[in-house]
Design a protein around this nucleic acid. Structure first.
Lengths: 230, 230
DNA sequence: TAGATTGTTAATCGATTAACAATC
DNA sequence: TAGATTGTTAATCGATTAACAATC
């Protein structure tokens, strides 16, 4: 089989570069929404996200040739277009949500999907009292109702925010339904990942523990003891 | 000044190692809560979180000597203790929450702080209609009320889930109040980070875009064209 | 003792960066 | 043209890993 994907470099893209690609796309989208549509430079992108300009240019080289213009920079809108095509983002990507309406409804309060290029079109809850509820014009189904019908809706990724003991079952059903990517928001450390599915975890407790380490750096020992002198 | 922190290696710990430290701590906590309290090995830890056993042992070497027992492995409870001390985790760490009660109340549905070694003891909302509400036995204050009094409560880290336009202001006030670590959950790409504060971002839209890339890998071009033959 | 697993070093791997020719 | 910035290479940096002596 021939190398089909038209990347400038034919090697698989490192995960960290891919993550920055998504971040560039988010950032450029923000700029466009804020009414900005001139050029930017690798230096500006680098400063904004906290890497070097060389890293940015290296990352963008995965997009192919003629990405920027020497001496000028990158067109914000066309760079965003290239990134979107590279990431295979449609204008609005349908996603499924799994979790109680309480959890999901409130995720929407800080992450309204439509504002970020997504559209929530399928809902599944582990809470029996959610049965029959309508969210965003879509009926909330039981988790058992997760089925390959999702594929017909064009849904390829799902967000999982169930109670912990429902995570594994949800992931298994999503995988069987042909879902290719799952973002797990409920803190969890042990999830068996079925073949053919990419799973990302958000881990709020781990992040907070990391922050606590930084918060107490250099404060652990009293600076007043004798032993410190030597 | 003498190197105060008692790490085996005196170099600053790489961010990625620190992150795995927090993850080991979360994992061991899960195991203990599940009633397991025998030994584990670097191999088991490695398999569970998806790295090699050498990486695990290398990571744990930051904890000091006598971490494990040759030929045997690591005691789950004492390794957890060492990690907790290294990360400077108290039995229960007080945290502040900034955001509307709708957003915060529902974050608690998938992240109940007490279940993860945290205790939410201060609340600040940008929503005027939240004024006077009581959450977890604590009155919800306005964002302007963020003050150095937080330090007296022992609060060193905060979670921010406000609407986007309140993020920067919240972070600024938290920094001025002496908060050392902030976890921003509301998607955002441009936040100026004040000196002396460590900020982590959760970026649901970026994560979903990354997943979409994986979801469509290898599907972009029809495999039926002539040009594919050669 | 034989088997297992740690702790650690040295080798490898891969990502970041400096630097600069190309070029707008 | 002079100034700016890209695209890319080669050098650097740092993290991962293989391997094995130490030791339970």
């Amino acid at each position: 089989m021939i190398n089909v994907r038209k990347t400038a470099k034919s090697k698989p893209i490192p995960a960290i570069v891919l993550h920055r690609m998504a971040l560039y796309h988010c950032l450029l989208t923000d700029w466009l929404l804020a009414g900005r549509n001139n050029s930017t430079t690798s230096k500006e992108l680098a400063n904004t996200i906290g890497v070097t300009d060389a890293t940015v240019r290296n990352d963008l080289s995965y997009l192919g040739d003629e990405t920027g213009v020497r001496g000028v920079g990158y067109s914000i809108s066309s760079l965003r277009g290239l990134l979107g095509r590279f990431l295979t983002l449609p204008p609005s990507a349908p996603i499924a949500f799994v979790g109680s309406t309480k959890a999901l409804g409130s995720i929407f309060s800080f992450f309204p999907p439509e504002k970020f290029g997504f559209i929530a079109t399928a809902f599944f809850s582990e809470d029996p009292s959610d049965r029959g509820t309508v969210v965003n014009g879509h009926e909330v189904h039981s988790i058992e109702a997760i089925s390959p019908a999702l594929g017909n809706l064009g849904i390829k990724v799902a967000v999982v925010a169930t109670l912990p003991n429902w995570i594994q079952h949800s992931v298994n059903l999503l995988a069987k339904a042909g879902i290719k990517g799952v973002l797990i928001i409920t803190p969890s450390t042990e999830v068996m990942i079925p073949d053919g599915v990419k799973v990302l975890h958000i881990r709020i407790p781990c992040d907070l523990k990391t922050l606590l380490y930084h918060a107490n750096l250099g404060e652990e020992e009293e600076p007043s003891s004798f032993e410190m002198v030597l």
